[in-house]
Design a protein around this nucleic acid. Structure first.
Length: 424
RNA sequence: GGAGAGAUGGCCGAGUAGGUCGAAGGCGCUCGCCUGCUAAGCGAGUAUACUGGGAAACCGGUAUCGAGGGUUCGAAUCCCUCUCUCUCCGCCA
């Protein structure tokens, strides 16, 4: 959510910066609602002040019959207040809804652009491997090795679900442990294991609601939603809190499954593990001082990169342009891993700074010292990494002509020393 | 699922025959004083949001005692609904 006072004072600038995202202008109607709200508020509050002081006078008089006229007058005033407050509530609801559907302002360092094509490659790491044979897709490799079973997953649930078995299941578990261990022991993150379903307030704070409800899986009876990313429960750990300056930065890492409807992506990545309704992910989440958020984003991105480097998987870092960053983000780096089966780099991590956008929605604040006013923290998060896609990258990059797959050295301790996955 | 109890400021905890309560008291914290140091002691201060005025310091108004409605001139206190927490029983990984 943007700062209402900022929009009030910089309407044109805000609209211009939002325009770099593409899409419709979204601030139309703001000024009118805002002015209406304030005029209602002033009238209502003036009457309330009057009512309060007269009520106090009444309280001092023992014989109420002597103030019958005042009581009658206040009855009218109360009725008027009620009318004003009803309208005020309507206006505030509309204003609130408007504010909740306006995306974040792109950071000044975010490249301006209209689409994916305008993203900027910042750096690359590693060399795509060369093969003396035609490299296969991960689903071919996985099915041949008997570690991935899409047919049975479809029987159990439906399309876009996967069943991993044997060394495949173990490899996923190994990746999760490996990533969590790396982030906790070397990067200073605290491991958390949050709920996988959350309430609407949490989804609203991080920005999935109210605009993107169709992307979420919902429960029917308690009105809970399955998390599309650990960002949601983990960022909400500190919703409605005032932190101490000395506590910042707070760094959490969490493994969770993620549930996404993938509405509107029909026909994209229909085969394999790339786009699933449920996938595993290890997430990094930070709460930082506003002055440090830019540096923290670089660091956090580096932490995600470390996973790929440790696994010796070639990747590149891409700065998303204004037209391609997410609703809540002001700046995003995507990590794209090389996939020989697709002969392309594909997203495996997305690291973003949200500025105070989520903090304002979720009222996550800190106090610089005991005397100062609370300020909003900045929140950041990034995948560290998407586990399913990491498995894809390993299968495709580490495949050999005979169909077997070499397990990256860093993972072998987590695989009971296993060095290769071979056909049974 | 059944029965009961409760939700007050950073924390603990008063306050329910409705009236001057943003809310006693204590703890904590901040500043000052005092004392070789520390502890103890003394004094002052210590919520948030919105809003009006002001360049600002700051001054004023409104709201907030789990959330939302209602009764009333007036509600932390009365009524209704919801949420959450705790205890006991049942069930269960």
């Amino acid at each position: 959510m943007l700062d209402m006072k900022f929009i009030r004072d910089h309407l044109d600038e805000a609209e211009q910066r939002l325009a770099t995202r593409g899409g419709e202008p979204c601030l139309a109607g703001f000024r009118q609602l805002d002015e209406r709200r304030r005029s209602l508020l002033i009238e209502s509050e003036t009457l309330k002040a009057q009512k309060n002081s007269v009520s106090e006078e009444i309280s001092k008089v023992k014989d109420k019959s002597r103030v019958a006229d005042k009581i009658a007058e206040m009855k009218t005033v109360s009725a008027r207040i009620k009318t004003l407050d009803d309208e005020l509530k309507t206006v505030e609801d509309e204003l609130q809804h408007l504010l909740l559907t306006i995306p974040n302002l792109p950071h000044h360092s975010t490249p301006i652009g209209r689409s994916e094509a305008d993203n900027v490659v910042v750096r690359s790491w590693g060399e795509p491997p060369s093969f003396s044979f035609e490299p296969k897709n991960h689903w071919e490799i996985g099915e041949q090795l008997g570690i991935l079973d899409f047919e049975r997953a479809a029987k159990i649930t439906g399309a876009r679900f996967a069943l991993s078995k044997g060394a495949g299941a173990r490899l996923e578990r190994a990746l999760i442990s490996f990533m969590l261990d790396l982030h906790t022991t070397e990067h200073g993150y605290t491991e958390v294991l949050p709920p996988f379903m959350v309430n609407r307030a949490s989804m609203t704070a991080t920005g999935q609601l109210p605009k993107f409800e169709e992307d979420l899986f919902k429960l029917v009876d308690p009105d809970f939603l399955l998390i599309p990313t650990a960002e949601v429960p983990v960022t909400n750990i500190h919703r409605d809190e005032i932190l101490k300056r000395s506590e910042l930065p707070i760094s959490y890492t969490a493994y969770t499954p993620c549930f996404r409807r993938e509405a509107g992506s029909y026909g994209k990545d229909t085969r394999g593990l790339i786009r699933q309704h449920q996938f595993n992910k290890v997430e990094l989440v930070k709460f930082v001082h506003p002055a440090e958020s830019e540096a923290e984003l670089e660091q956090l991105t580096g932490h995600a990169e470390r996973v790929l480097q440790s696994l010796e998987l070639p990747y590149r870092v891409v700065a998303l342009c204004s037209g391609d960053i997410g609703f809540s983000a002001c700046k995003t780096y995507d990590l794209e891993v090389w996939l020989p089966g697709q002969n392309a780099y594909r997203e495996i991590s997305s690291c973003s700074s949200f500025g105070d956008f989520q903090a304002r929605r979720g009222s996550i604040r800190f106090r610089d010292d005991d005397k100062s006013k609370p300020e909003f923290v900045h929140t950041l998060n990034g995948s560290g990494l998407a586990v399913g896609r990491t498995l894809v990258a390993i299968l495709e990059n580490c495949q050999r002509a005979d169909g077997s797959v070499v397990i990256p050295k860093a993972l072998r301790p987590y695989m009971g020393g296993l060095e290769n996955i071979t056909t049974p």
